[in-house]
Measured scan of single mutants.
Amino acid sequence: QNEKLANELKSLLDELNVNELATGSLNTYYKRTIKISGQKAMYALKSKDFKKMSEAKYQLQKIYNEIDEA
C-alpha cells in the first residue's frame, strides 16, 4: 500500500513544474501554496511515512484543482 501511494505521489510531483508555471498570472497564494505543497511531498516521499504521504498527496491534488479552476 505504501508503494502504491508513493507512486501516486511521485506522479503528482512530476506535474509540479507544469502547475507551478500555470500560477504565473495567478494570485501569490497559489505560487506560495504549490511550492510549499511540493516541498512537503518530497519530504514525505523521503520519510516513507504513510500518513505524511497521504496528507501531501491530498494537498497537491487540492492545489492542482484550485489552479485548474482559477
Rank of each mutant, 00 (worst) to 15 (best):
A41E: 01
A41H: 01
Y64F: 11
L60E: 00
K40R: 12
Y30I: 05
K40G: 03
K62G: 03
A56G: 02
E20Y: 14
N19T: 07
A22S: 06
E55P: 01
E55T: 06
D49W: 02
K4L: 10
N17K: 14
I36Y: 09
A41M: 02
V18I: 11
I34S: 01
G38W: 15
E66N: 04
K62V: 05
Y64R: 08
M53H: 00
A44L: 02
N19S: 07
S25Y: 09
K10R: 13
V18D: 09
L13M: 05
G38T: 12
I63R: 01
N65S: 10
Q59K: 05
K57G: 02
K46H: 09
N19H: 15
K48Y: 08
N2M: 14
Y43T: 12
E55F: 07
N19R: 15
R32G: 03
Y30N: 02
E20A: 13
L12S: 01
L16D: 00
S47G: 04
R32A: 06
M42D: 04
S25N: 12
Q1C: 12
S11P: 00
Y30Q: 04
S37E: 12
K40I: 11
G24C: 14
K35I: 10
N17D: 10
K57L: 15
I63K: 01
E66A: 09
S25G: 10
E69R: 14
Q59R: 07
T23E: 04
L12R: 00
G38L: 15
F50D: 04
R32N: 09
I36T: 06
E20G: 06
M53P: 01
D68N: 14
L45V: 03
E69G: 07
N17L: 14
K57N: 03
K57C: 08
G38S: 12
N65V: 06
K46I: 12
S25D: 09
N2S: 11
K35N: 06
E66W: 10
G24M: 14
S54L: 15
A22F: 08
Q39A: 11
L26W: 05
S54N: 09
T23V: 08
Q39C: 13
Y29N: 03
L45R: 00
E15Y: 14
M53C: 03
E3C: 11
S37A: 15
L13G: 00
A70N: 05
V18A: 12
N65D: 10
Y58V: 10
Q61R: 06
Q59T: 05
K62C: 10
R32E: 12
S54F: 10
Q1I: 13
D49G: 02
N2W: 15
T23S: 09
S37K: 07
L9G: 00
L12T: 00
N7E: 12
E55W: 10
Q61S: 05
E69S: 10
N27A: 12
K51Q: 12
E20H: 09
K51Y: 08
V18S: 11
K48R: 14
K51T: 10
R32T: 10
D14Y: 08
K52W: 05
G24K: 14
L26A: 03
A22V: 08
E3H: 06
A44P: 01
D14V: 06
K62P: 00
Q1N: 10
E55V: 09
D68I: 15
Y64A: 05
L5T: 02
S47L: 11
E55G: 03
S25V: 10
Q61I: 13
E8I: 05
L9W: 00
A41K: 00
A6C: 08
S11T: 12
Q1E: 13
E15M: 15
L16T: 02
K51E: 11
N65C: 13
S25T: 10
K52I: 08
E69I: 12
M42Q: 09
S47N: 06
A70M: 09
L5Y: 02
T33P: 01
N7F: 12
N7V: 09
M53W: 01
N7H: 10
K48Q: 09
A44D: 00
A44K: 02
I34Y: 02
V18P: 04
L5C: 15
Y43R: 14
L21D: 06
E15G: 07
N19F: 15
S11W: 11
Q61G: 03
Q59Y: 13
A22L: 14
Y43M: 14
Y58E: 13
G24H: 15
L9H: 01
Q59P: 00
L26S: 03
N17A: 14
F50G: 06
D14R: 12
K35S: 06
N17F: 14
E69D: 07
E3R: 08
K31P: 03
N65Q: 12
K31C: 09
Q1M: 12
Y58C: 10
Y30S: 03
D14N: 09
E15N: 10
K10H: 04
A6T: 06
R32L: 11
E15H: 12
T23K: 06
E15W: 13
L16C: 04
I67W: 03
V18W: 13
D68C: 15
N7S: 11
A22C: 11
N17I: 13
M42A: 08
M42C: 08
R32Y: 13
A44T: 00
T28G: 13
N27R: 08
E15L: 15
E20L: 15
S47C: 07
I63D: 01
D68P: 03
S25F: 11
I36D: 06
N65L: 11
T33Q: 15
I67A: 02
R32P: 01
K57D: 00
Q59C: 14
D68V: 14
N7G: 09
R32H: 11
K10I: 09
K52F: 05
S25H: 12
L45D: 01
E69N: 10
Q39R: 13
S25P: 11
T28R: 13
N2G: 09
K35M: 10
Y29T: 03
I34R: 02
Q61P: 01
M42K: 11
Q61K: 07
Y29V: 03
L45I: 07
S25W: 08
K31Q: 12
L16P: 01
S47W: 05
K62M: 07
N27F: 05
M53D: 00
